[in-house]
Amino acid sequence: MSSSPQFTDLEYERSADGVYKLNYDVRAEMDTAIRNHSWCLRLSLPDDDFFEVDEFSRYIEPECAAATAVDYLGQEYSYGLTREDHSVFRYGLSATIRQHASYGRRPDTVPIQIFLRSDRLTELDHKGVAWLQAFQSPEKPKNPLEWSIGAMHEITQNMIYLTGSTNYSTPAGDAVSQGSGVCQDFAHILIGLCRAHGVPARYVNGFLVGDGVTHAWVEVFVEGRWYGLDPTHNRLVVHDYIPLARGRNAEDCSLNRGVWSSVVQQHQHISASLVEVLE
């Protein structure tokens, strides 16, 4: 069994080094003003060791005192309470990021086993389990990373990307059954497959070069290190991806949550741009 898998059909040759400019802006418009709005936002980049943050700023409007705390994975987030009437809630961040190594993450302090437990969003139905059995070749045991890449290929062959075909709480099983979904669903399916095979897997919310909104991908834990896999684009994550939040599933790393006590229609305009800049 090889410990350094071959990624012949994957984009990996290019050097991982690069400088990126990140701009993330979310504008939520309510049709009626709200007040006493409690919120919780992911506006901090993680302390990964494959990149460094050169410049960083963030904002929340209406301007409001923001407190910070860390979650169970040690990720920092902002929370607060906006009392005044407001019909627009806007927040975002901008940063200059210098990547100097391939995408990856050292182990966290939490036990790895929590990324093996299936949950409502990542659980597979019988069709997903049938896939799993179909592409498992019993004669040749694979390195778990190679295996996960095989699972990712399987998703690409069986699923089509279709905006609006699922929603934020669609379980992996439903997406498999209908054969379509978006990046969140592709990620949940790959997580479900990996966990069923005994490979710890988790969800990542973040930014991809060229995407207009945030993107979701997967990390699998193999031989003491987290590797990134993007099932939407069927590739190993090496460069051009900047994580913002990690967790067991999409709900676990939602970028914003808010609570207020009136019924309103809300429209969110999200713009995320990650651009590689030449120095």
């Binding site: 919780c40 929370y79 949550r257």
Partner: peptide, 22 residues
């Protein structure tokens, strides 16, 4: 806490887990 657990809970206290953790 709808910010950490069931997001649709309206009987909880938003962000109570943050001050509990502190």
């Amino acid at each position: 806490d709808p910010m950490v657990f069931e997001p649709d809970s309206i009987i909880g206290v938003p962000n109570i887990m943050s001050v509990y953790r502190k």
